[in-house]
Simulated assay, not measured.
Amino acid sequence: MTIRLPDARGRLGTYEPRRAPLARSAAAPFTSRTFFAAAHVVADPYADVSPGSPAVVDWDATLAFRRHLWSHGLGVAEAMDTAQRGMGLDWAGAAELIRRSAAEARAAGGRIVCGIGTDQLPAGSVAEVRTAYEEQLAVVEEAGAQAVVMASRALAAAARGPEDYLETYGHLLRQAADPVILHWLGPMFDPALEGYWGSGDLDAATDVFLEVVAAHPDKVHGVKISLLDARRETDLRRRLPRGVRCYTGDDFHYPELIAGDEQGFSHALLGIFDPLCPLAAQAAQVLDTGDAKGFRALLDPTVELSRHLFRAPTRFYKTGVVLLAWLAGHQEHFTMVGGLQSARSLPHLATAYELADGLGLFPDPDLAQARMRSLLSVYGVAR
């Protein structure tokens, strides 16, 4: 059975969905790389909310999705930007998400890291930024999780130059009970982070970032780079102190960065691994055998989908991620906190469906097709 889908020009074309998903191998622990999926949250579709009001989360569905990720061997990167931090999920909701997911991780035996930022502070002084970071670090440490120190909009606005970043991060790292992951999120993901590390020059910013790491190598487990620049990530990776890991956050070049080269490789902490979970797990198992070509053969075809979901304005990639979770049967609706389901056009969503279906990402292709038809009908597309 075919389905009519609109293209970027608004013209309807005919697409014939797959009849069966790709076969998947059984889950097994990964040995050569660490894979974290930055996970989305599931909104409560029956909550009576308005734009700007606190998010209401469907906790059962949200935690069930995390169990899905763990069941395939991936770790969960919790309360990151994929969970709509600063785009519908406020700090109170994120703190509850961290507590619940960390408890679920202990029960399931899954690995979890949790994002900390300063989103309870819309604006403030550098001293207030430090206090906000400390508050969030305490929540993550009390939950028994490892912290990912995310970039701060408030610090980007308050900092006078590189010295404020060095002081703020140095202070926080000295407070941390255990090594953390430092996250450099580029302005393509959040325009408010332009000029982070005290400079709009990425070379100068990289030097400051590496200065923070070099000053506290015992408190930095790893760094996560989300700049969508493979060359820059590779160069930065080679300059890290021994023992500090690089986690790629590059949703455009992840296969080559994870596969690596003769001088090293990146681990992964990626939003695209939310919808790619089973396929990413299969690729990780292939890489564990030393078969880099087989790994690339599995993951390279997924880049077209990832580039589509993360195309500019990149920060709205969450809409496509949640669409695919709904089509795959991981939740019963296509509703997002903050109403972000409206952030992408119907042609964009239709292409996401077609690309994901072509990769065999839907466990039940008939369900995915039926749900896509129901979405199309809302927009007035006749059968």
Rank of each mutant, 00 (worst) to 15 (best):
116 I>V: 15
153 R>G: 02
343 A>N: 08
299 L>C: 10
272 I>V: 12
293 K>F: 13
293 K>A: 15
16 E>K: 10
20 A>F: 14
10 G>Y: 09
298 L>Y: 04
225 I>R: 07
241 P>N: 05
131 T>W: 10
159 A>F: 02
269 L>A: 11
133 Y>Q: 03
31 T>W: 07
250 D>P: 06
282 Q>E: 13
140 V>I: 06
71 S>V: 09
21 P>I: 06
187 P>F: 00
348 H>E: 14
382 A>S: 12
316 F>G: 07
25 S>F: 06
243 G>L: 04
346 L>M: 11
83 A>K: 09
118 T>V: 05
147 A>I: 11
276 L>W: 08
141 E>F: 01
90 D>M: 05
201 D>V: 00
125 S>A: 07
92 A>N: 05
243 G>D: 14
226 S>E: 08
79 A>T: 08
266 S>V: 04
369 Q>A: 14
328 A>I: 06
61 A>E: 11
208 V>T: 14
338 G>Y: 10
77 A>S: 15
39 A>M: 14
373 R>K: 13
107 A>N: 11
382 A>I: 06
93 G>T: 07
249 G>W: 03
156 A>N: 11
179 P>D: 12
284 A>G: 13
178 D>P: 04
275 P>T: 06
102 A>S: 15
175 Q>H: 07
97 L>M: 11
185 L>W: 01
263 Q>F: 13
254 Y>T: 09
335 T>V: 15
240 L>Q: 02
372 M>R: 00
64 A>C: 05
3 I>H: 01
230 A>T: 09
180 V>A: 08
53 S>A: 15
233 E>V: 00
91 W>D: 12
354 E>H: 10
382 A>C: 04
127 A>R: 13
154 A>I: 02
267 H>C: 12
334 F>V: 00
15 Y>W: 15
297 A>F: 01
78 E>I: 03
151 A>P: 13
49 V>R: 10
191 P>C: 08
38 A>P: 11
192 A>T: 14
356 A>L: 09
121 L>F: 04
209 F>M: 13
